[in-house]
């Protein structure tokens, strides 16, 4: 952990600030969030790394998607993701969001979350232990450091692709596009 590395702070304050101040908003269904409270509270105390839960996506820069994603809840996920401030990072959490998990053959479960929003990292497990969450966060730090956690840039640049996929799934979207779409590509 290079949190006290002053030279690095002076060199790239943005990167360092984003690394050590991850404010999390989490989406959870079913058993998904069961391991998050111990992480955030006294037992594992994520606040010592600057990770705190916040109330609205506007304030957050880390999005934890815990638990299976259905077609209906995907809308809320996309909406929340679009409302977060940039730079923003997404972590798929547990096997359900990764590939449907135990709901792998459900007609209604989303098996490819990263077709709809960009995901920066996955934490496998059913459920992942708090230690695994910390390992995931450490990996995310590394990615931020190397400039690999670029999901939000991918979303902006390939917005036609993501919006197209979303529209294909939902038929029509209730809210207007976040970024301007390029000509003739929004038919998916």
């Amino acid at each position: 952990m290079d949190r006290n590395n002053l030279i690095k702070w002076l060199k790239e304050p943005k990167k360092m600030g984003n690394k050590y101040s991850l404010w999390a908003v989490y989406f959870s269904t079913a058993c998904g969030v069961i391991e998050v409270p111990p992480v955030l509270t006294s037992r594992w105390d994520a606040e010592r790394f600057g990770i705190i839960p916040v109330a609205t996506p506007r304030q957050a820069n880390l999005f934890l998607i815990t638990g299976y994603v259905t077609t209906k809840t995907l809308k809320a996920i996309i909406r929340t993701y679009e409302q977060m401030a940039e730079p923003k990072y997404t972590i798929g959490f547990g096997s359900c969001p990764i590939n449907g998990g135990m709901y792998w053959d459900s007609y209604n479960t989303i098996k490819h979350l990263d077709k709809y929003i960009p995901v920066d990292g996955w934490i496998a497990g059913c459920m992942p232990r708090p230690e695994a969450i910390f390992i995931g966060v450490t990996k995310l730090w590394g990615m931020i450091d190397k400039g690999l956690a670029t999901g939000y840039i991918r979303y902006r640049e390939n917005y036609d692709y993501y919006r197209g996929n979303q529209e294909k799934l939902f038929g029509s979207m209730e809210w207007p596009p976040l970024y301007t779409l390029k000509e003739g590509t929004n038919d998916g």
Partner: peptide, 13 residues
């Protein structure tokens, strides 16, 4: 202070 550095670097609405 870390939080402030991060917040000032963010692009919001």
């Amino acid at each position: 202070v870390i939080d402030l550095v991060k917040l000032f670097s963010q692009r919001t609405v």
